[in-house]
């Protein structure tokens, strides 16, 4: 099994001061001052792939693991960390384009990489990222590859016959199915999927290995299928007001405060459900 895990490096928007949500003439918000992180859904994808590899190792059929991102050199630190975490390859498709709202271009680049270089038969990636929020890349990629795509995946385990046992959320519950690659798996809310941390020993042994850098234009010119036309045009952008307010419940005792909470708020709220 040859697994490709795709991830995006994004600014940690939780650290953005409220007053800094200013949109410039190119419809961009300056986020360069905050720390970069791996998009949380993609972080889950990376950890789930490692957990899958751990379990497959136990069954003595260890998969090949490649981590791939698209972007500039700010992703290299994360790629080195992934090398230290025993990803066999760490690949960056070098692109300085604004890909926030272009999932079709991301999908075309990923497909080109798979077809021309990676020859992967399983692709795992987060369902969406906070930058762009398109939630389309896995689905478009599946369409380009002609592979099935399972969304809202929360765990992946090895199954007999080089298959995968995939758990995902569906409208009316949880679905557990065994599937045969090739396939694309879009990770949703997955419990216990914070990315593990490499030891200094791991970093010394593996983290210094080079990151493979592939020029996006060259990749597309030599192996890619043309990107689908963009599905949306960005017209405007504005910050969502996430301010919260509260009231302080007065009372002499905990019992009094509980009564006040129930009668002034909870009772009406519960009745409205």
């Amino acid at each position: 099994m040859n697994i490709l895990v795709c991830f995006k490096v994004v600014p940690d928007l939780d650290l953005m001061p409220g007053g800094d949500w200013n949109v410039d003439s190119r419809l961009r918000v300056e986020t360069g001052y905050v720390k970069n992180i791996i998009n949380p859904y993609d972080e889950s994808a990376l950890e789930i792939a490692l957990q899958f590899a751990d379990k497959a190792d136990d069954d003595q059929c260890s998969p090949g693991l490649t981590a791939l991102t698209i972007g500039d050199s700010k992703a290299n630190l994360h790629l080195k960390t992934l090398r230290a975490l025993s990803f066999d390859r760490a690949v960056r498709i070098d692109s300085k384009e604004d890909l926030r709202f272009r999932p079709e271009t991301c999908a075309a680049l990923i497909s080109a990489y798979i077809n021309k270089i990676g020859k992967n038969n399983v692709v795992i990636m987060g369902r969406q990222s906070g930058v762009g929020d398109n939630a389309q890349t896995p689905l478009i990629c599946a369409e380009m590859m002609g592979w099935p795509c399972i969304t809202q995946v929360s765990s992946i385990e090895p199954a007999a016959g080089a298959c995968l046992r995939v758990t995902n959320l569906v409208d009316d519950g949880t679905c557990r199915q065994t599937i045969e690659p090739p396939c694309i798996l879009a990770i949703g809310n997955a419990p216990n999927s914070y990315l593990r941390v490499p030891t200094l020993k791991d970093i010394k042994a593996h983290g210094q290995k080079p990151v493979e850098v592939i020029d996006a234009a060259v990749l597309m010119a030599t192996g890619g299928q043309p990107a689908l036309p963009g599905g949306c045009e960005l017209l405007g952008i504005e910050a969502i007001d996430r301010r919260r307010s509260g009231i302080i419940i007065e009372g002499e005792t905990a019992a009094e405060k509980t009564q006040a909470l129930y009668y002034s708020y909870l009772k009406g709220w519960l009745a409205g459900i």
Binding site: L15, M16, P17, D20, Y33, V34, K35
Partner: peptide, 12 residues
């Protein structure tokens, strides 16, 4: 370093 980098970190 541009102070804004430091200010954003300090605020968090």
């Amino acid at each position: 370093v541009e102070p804004k980098y430091i200010q954003v970190w300090f605020d968090n």
